[in-house]
Design a binder for these strands. Structure first.
Lengths: 147, 147
DNA sequence: CCTAATAGTAGGTGGCGACCCATCATTGGT
DNA sequence: ACCAATGATGGGTCGCCACCTACTATTAGG
């Protein structure tokens, strides 16, 4: 009496969309508990992985509008998780660096995401999880390449 | 210079979220070209798979707010894709039925989704697609069961 | 030196999805 | 016959996301 229509379940993109959405939702849920959103996490991760960025480079890397980067950084800076500094070589640029507090926050967020992973992938064993992960990575790479 | 942060790519829920989002986006893109949204497709699929529903049953099945069902049906009915009829046995209820035009529309939407599947799953061979699909179905089932 | 391009900022828009409440007709229980 | 619950509806809110424009400061090119 409450089943999802089989003709939808037969479509992989539909499943991807649904499962992806709940994954996203559950992550967002935990992030909001820490007064963060997905973009905050992405920015912190980019800074941690690749070091300081100019804002426009952050925008390019994360494929987000530059004016939106500003807003995200405003909030991260207000919380002391990143620092903004004028680039002395080109005073138009602002170099953004992650702070110690930022790294701490990021590791909390990562832990949250791992917890979500545990929830979502519960029915799968280790091997299956690895398979899923590698399939998704290939799809992801394909989607974000050429063009 | 444009890579996604590895610490994010290591998290399966993140990948699910990203891949799911583009899947959703690409489907939505094609649906809008037909002046439809995801819920329209879901409703048509439910009606096609399970036959006529009272509106409240549609809401329960698709886990959508009853008042939103009304709006979706308004649009589907205006386009002649469903028919509403008062249930003579209980004149509060409205029985919704898919029309021939509705079935046609649904099959177009399904074709669109298959096309998206082709795009998104391009790098995977038949076997891999099957594996992915079955893993996703298990996750989906797990997410929508108990509670 | 002056102009065009660049980097950051401020502010506003529109779509969409999820939700919540008030209302009205109808029905079922007692 | 009456009152509470039910089904459909109309209306409105809120948050998120993606996008777009105008404006300022600074730099680079001719």
């Amino acid at each position: 009496m409450e089943e999802t229509p089989p003709s939808l379940l037969a479509l992989t993109p539909y499943l991807l969309s649904r499962v992806g959405k709940t994954a996203r939702g559950r992550i967002a849920e935990r992030l909001t508990a820490r007064e963060m959103r997905l973009w905050h996490m992405a920015v912190l991760a980019a800074l941690a992985d690749f070091g300081p960025h100019a804002q426009r480079d952050l925008a390019a890397r994360l494929r987000i509008d530059p004016s939106d980067v500003v807003k995200v950084l405003d909030e991260l800076a207000a919380a002391g998780r990143v620092e903004r500094a004028r680039d002395p070589a080109d005073r138009r640029r602002v170099t953004v660096t992650i702070t110690a507090a930022g790294r701490t926050a990021l590791s909390e967020l990562t832990a949250d995401t791992s917890a979500v992973q545990e929830e979502v992938l519960a029915p799968l064993d280790e091997g299956e999880r690895a398979v899923l992960h590698s399939l998704l990575r290939r799809i992801f790479a394909h989607l974000h390449e050429g063009t």
